[in-house]
Amino acid sequence: MKSIATLTMNPTIDVSYDVAEMRHTHKMRTDNEWYAPGGGGLNVARVFVRLGGNARSFYLSGGATGPALDGLVDLHQLVRTRIAITGPTRVASAVLERQSGKEYRFTPQGPRIAPGEWNECLDQLDETDADIVVLSGSLPPGVPDDFYAQATRRLRRKGIEVVLDSSAPALSHGIAEGDLLLVKPSSGELESYLGTSLSGHSAIADAARRIVAEGKARLVAVTLGHEGAILARADGAWFLPALPIEAASAVGAGDSFVAAMVYALARGDDDLAAFRMGLAAGTAAVLRAGTGLAQAADIARLLRQVPDPEPL
Rank of each mutant, 00 (worst) to 15 (best):
L219H: 14
A232F: 04
A247N: 01
V262P: 10
A207S: 15
A170S: 15
S186I: 10
G268E: 09
A229R: 00
I245G: 02
V251Y: 06
H173F: 15
H226V: 12
A170E: 09
E214F: 02
A285V: 12
G225M: 02
A266G: 14
D179H: 14
A289L: 02
A250Y: 08
E214Y: 03
R209Q: 15
A229I: 02
M277W: 06
D235G: 09
A176K: 14
A247S: 14
G268A: 08
Y193G: 00
E214G: 00
T283K: 06
A247G: 05
R276H: 10
S199K: 09
M261W: 06
A274M: 06
L265V: 05
R210V: 13
V212I: 07
I175V: 15
A281W: 12
V222K: 01
R209K: 13
W238G: 00
D235I: 07
V220M: 06
S172W: 00
L231Q: 04
S192K: 08
G178Q: 04
A253L: 12
R267P: 00
H173T: 08
L180I: 11
K184D: 09
G236C: 12
E177F: 07
P244S: 13
L198S: 09
D271N: 07
G200A: 05
V222G: 04
L181K: 06
L171Y: 05
G215Q: 07
E246N: 13
R276C: 14
H226A: 15
D271Y: 11
Y263Q: 04
A208Q: 10
G290D: 06
R210C: 02
T196N: 04
A284E: 07
L272M: 10
V258G: 01
S256L: 05
V212E: 03
A208N: 05
M277I: 10
A217N: 07
A242M: 03
W238T: 02
T196W: 00
L198W: 05
G268S: 11
T223P: 05
A213N: 11
T291P: 04
G195V: 05
G174K: 03
R267W: 12
L243Y: 04
F275T: 02
K184H: 08
M277A: 10
A273L: 11
E214C: 01
H226K: 13
A281D: 13
L194V: 07
T283E: 08
A250G: 15
L171M: 09
